[in-house]
Design a protein around this nucleic acid. Structure first.
Lengths: 205, 205
DNA sequence: AATTTACTGTACTCGAGGTCAGGTTGGTTT
DNA sequence: AAACCAACCTGACCTCGAGTACAGTAAATT
């Protein structure tokens, strides 16, 4: 990574945390450059304007998140061949990952952007939307594979059950943040896991 | 309601929508007073500073929300005597209420404030926390009553199951907003309902 | 008549996003 | 070795709107 890339990443790191803590509108370039020890012109060398910063933050966040999900659910699939059990293992791994964050989850960028919607140009909004659709697709595929083997015990729409992963994580993050109890997030994920178990298990003990 | 109260409410209405759409930091007093057709000094007659506006918005939001929940779950209890069925009816009513919003849910103020945390003084943050604890208490009471009659079919922590109501709503709102699909929210609530059904129903068909 | 309520008008400061012209560094060509 | 050039910045500057202060005032209430 060249020196330029390094600076750019540093700016993104600082901006990302600020956006999650105060919102995009309240995140000032002034404050970013102060922390990054760079001048304003240096900043504008890396990002044409604030909206380009927004896009870069979100893009990087989404790439990392996708990478994490790939890693966890690929690993889960290695650990168990059955689609249901693999999914349950993946959720457990996810819950553990979330529980391991020392200061709690810093926040979901998708959620932060939803509550700053009006500040962004259409390209950013569409990026956000596409990301959530991607997660929907990812989990719907897993659920369909499960449903083929284990018929669901309630009449549910698998697409919504897939959305429920994102919903649970985003909702859990908010509760964790609001309560100041980081553990809440992983507990919510485990409850989703409990639902999946009840929904697909052929015999419930 | 006197003329002063009316103006105050109008200011809160405008500010509330803006906060949900752009975040508190990006919500400018200038823009609020332009829409409210009042001068800046008029605004500061009603609110000492921006933080007092924040507190007033949140307080009013929480009061309304509590009122809504009271209404729905009291009504549900009127419709059915059994605690489980009453809860399921309440959730159905909630899902219907959320589905009835013409332009989708405008957003949860608690969530918006979480992603603007650093902008508020401790009193506002504590107000937010207390609200979520209140919801936890409300639903934990219902769940305990249910669990006495219907032993849960999975080993879960009722407090977390109670939190899951808030988590589901907040998560659902985010997905709805991100996707531009208002229907997603009520579907998520119905999935939570499905979980409750599976978790407590003595015989699952 | 006095007081309170509900504002208006004016003025001030500061930080915000953004521009532009220039400068330094390290590598590449001639 | 000199010349060049692209990457990576710095410094000075500009404009605008934001939050705030405060003195004044018209109308309603007491």
């Amino acid at each position: 990574m060249g020196k330029g890339q390094e600076t750019r990443e540093r700016l993104l790191d600082i901006a990302e945390l600020s956006v999650l803590a105060k919102g995009f509108g309240a995140t000032s370039i002034e404050e970013i450059i102060a922390e990054a020890q760079i001048t304003k012109s240096g900043f504008f060398y890396h990002f044409r304007d604030k909206n380009e910063l927004a896009r870069a933050i979100l893009q990087r966040y989404l790439d990392r998140e996708d990478g994490l999900l790939d890693e966890l659910f690929d690993r889960a699939r290695e650990l168990h061949d059955d689609p249901l059990h693999a999914f349950l293992i993946g959720l457990k791994l996810l819950a553990e990952k979330m529980a391991d964050l020392p200061n709690g989850h810093p926040g979901c960028m998708v959620a932060a952007y939803c509550y700053n919607e009006r500040l962004f140009d259409p390209s950013v909004r569409s990026l956000n939307r596409t990301a959530v659709l991607g997660w929907r697709e990812r989990f719907v595929a897993m659920l369909e594979e499960i449903a083929e083997v284990y018929p669901p015990r309630d009449d549910v729409d698998l697409q919504s059950v897939a959305d429920m992963v994102s919903s649970t994580v985003d909702g859990g993050i908010i509760l964790s943040k609001a309560l100041g109890e980081p553990a809440v997030l992983s507990r919510q994920i485990l409850l989703y896991r409990s639902y999946i178990k009840l929904l697909f298990s052929p015999t419930v003990n």
